[in-house]
Amino acid sequence: MKILVTGGTGVLGSSFAALAKENGYEVVLASRNRPSLSPAEWTYLNLETGEGLSTALSGVEVVFHAATSPAKNTEKVDVMGTSLLLEECIKNGVKHFIYPSIVGIDDIPMKYYRAKRSAEAMIMESGTPYSIMRVTQFHNLVDKLISILAKFPICIVPTNLKFQTCDVDEVSETFIQIVKNGPLGRVEDFGGPEILSLKEMYMSWKEQSKVNRVLIPLPYFPGKTFKAFQEGKNTNPLCEKGLHTWEHWIQKKQ
Score class of each variant (00 low, 15 high):
108 I>C: 14
18 A>T: 13
218 L>C: 08
47 L>R: 05
108 I>Q: 05
141 L>N: 11
111 K>I: 13
72 K>C: 02
204 S>A: 14
202 Y>V: 08
60 V>A: 06
18 A>E: 15
187 V>L: 10
6 T>L: 09
45 L>V: 03
120 E>Y: 09
152 F>N: 05
201 M>K: 01
46 N>D: 15
233 K>W: 06
112 Y>V: 03
45 L>Q: 04
162 K>F: 07
200 E>Y: 01
42 W>R: 06
142 V>C: 04
208 Q>L: 07
137 Q>K: 02
71 A>T: 12
144 K>H: 12
209 S>H: 13
177 Q>K: 15
18 A>Y: 05
163 F>Q: 02
27 V>W: 06
242 G>H: 07
158 P>H: 02
49 T>Y: 08
70 P>N: 06
99 Y>F: 15
12 L>N: 04
49 T>K: 05
41 E>I: 12
30 A>C: 02
247 E>I: 04
241 K>F: 06
45 L>N: 01
233 K>R: 14
41 E>G: 00
27 V>G: 04
39 P>T: 04
13 G>F: 10
175 F>H: 02
76 K>P: 00
100 P>S: 12
59 G>N: 02
75 E>R: 02
223 G>F: 04
36 S>P: 00
237 P>H: 03
130 Y>E: 08
173 E>P: 00
52 G>H: 05
228 A>W: 04
211 V>I: 14
74 T>V: 09
111 K>A: 15
197 S>D: 02
93 G>T: 04
246 W>G: 03
85 L>N: 05
82 T>S: 13
214 V>R: 09
64 F>R: 02
81 G>S: 09
157 V>Q: 02
204 S>G: 06
27 V>A: 00
94 V>W: 09
132 I>M: 07
30 A>I: 04
166 C>P: 00
91 K>Q: 11
196 L>K: 13
110 M>G: 03
252 K>N: 14
127 G>Y: 01
35 P>I: 01
243 L>I: 04
191 G>L: 08
157 V>L: 13
233 K>N: 11
104 G>V: 10
85 L>I: 04
170 E>H: 00
174 T>L: 10
164 Q>K: 11
24 G>Q: 10
156 I>F: 14
86 L>P: 03
167 D>L: 03
54 S>G: 09
145 L>A: 13
111 K>Y: 13
27 V>N: 05
130 Y>Q: 07
16 F>L: 15
1 M>P: 11
23 N>L: 00
127 G>H: 03
171 V>I: 14
58 S>R: 13
132 I>E: 08
206 K>R: 14
59 G>L: 05
55 T>M: 08
154 I>Q: 06
171 V>T: 07
22 E>D: 14
107 D>F: 13
127 G>Q: 07
173 E>M: 13
136 T>E: 01
74 T>K: 01
47 L>C: 06
33 N>M: 03
140 N>D: 11
167 D>W: 00
164 Q>V: 10
201 M>L: 15
78 D>P: 09
215 L>D: 11
23 N>D: 05
216 I>V: 15
222 P>N: 08
64 F>T: 00
199 K>F: 11
